[in-house]
Amino acid sequence: MYTQALDNPGSEAQPADSGESGGRAARFQARIDVDEKIEPKDWMPEAYRQTLIRQISQHAHSEVVGMLPEGNWITRAPSLKRKAVLIAKVQDEGGHGMYLYSAAETLGISRAEMFEQLLSGAAKYSSIFNYPTLSWADIGAIGWLVDGAAIMNQIPICRCSYGPYARAMVRICKEESFHQRQGFEIMLTLAHGTPAQRAMAQDALNRWWWPSLMMFGPSDAESKHTAQSMRWKIKRFTNDELRQKFIDITVPQAQFLGLTLPDEALRWDEATQHFQIGPIDWSEFQAVLKGNGPCNRERLEARRAAHDAGRWVREAAAAHAHKERMRASAAVPPGSAPEPRVAP
């Protein structure tokens, strides 16, 4: 789902290696076929590298932008425990962004470049974070639905072919499970609370259900890149498979909460043993991806403003570090060996 925009015109991942030695490409594919991990300095087709850079950086951007809709409620969390848990969750998301930028940097792109792509609007991030958090219940809905969907997507990637990405995902998955539980717990407390709280929870579900389903991206039947990504073990399941799994798991949870899903067509299909949903409005999804969702502008503006406002800080730190290095080399007489250092 963090790769929703991979198939847009302009994304150049080519299905076959064009102009690269057929032998090397075949050996590379053979490694992948036996589940060998590809590591940073290994030879890889340029298209594999570019696809990964785009996928990992979009994932990282999603985590970083995702801090905003939830961060929105930190100052208004209704209990000290909830406040602490929310801060910890948002902090985790920042950390996840860092693990992922880290992984992407092993492929030859810098954090500064990736960040610039995000701030300029050139890079995409998951559509879901362009929706506003309008009530405290939204925080519950996000943890339950959005993190739930993310977990579904992330677990298979723990086995992806690129070592640093797989390892980052293992770390992320370990931390993610608390996110979904805290969200569901909030919904449970609200659903069993006062009538006003129940209404708050239902309203949040009404607004977050469809966007959560859209997170998985359109049907892969419409994507020419899915096949190559699956061959390279970057993508392990189709969008539809993951979406269906999510629906089947989540509908009973909503029933347990005593909340109604905003889908009149939703029904259990005895024959297929799956829940069938109504039609997804993909035009809304496309609009959000293009930048016309409810909060796209605000999200990017916030990140841009923070980045600009922080420029003098980053410069000061770099300047100070430079001064310290100058002082250190002036203090050491030429020719003497430096002492091993413990950082102060």
């Binding site: 970083v64 801090m67 905003l68 961060g71 930190i74 100052t75 801060i87 910890a88 948002v90 902090q91 920042g94 950390g95 962004g97 860092m98 930028y101 916030a302 990140r303 403003a305 923070a306 980045h307 406002a309 922080g310 420029r311 800080v313 980053r314």
Partner: peptide, 16 residues
């Protein structure tokens, strides 16, 4: 109040 607005991602985590 600083979450989402710090000068660098690392400082977001530190302030949090």
């Amino acid at each position: 109040e600083w979450v989402g607005h710090a000068p660098e991602l690392e400082e977001e985590l530190a302030l949090a």
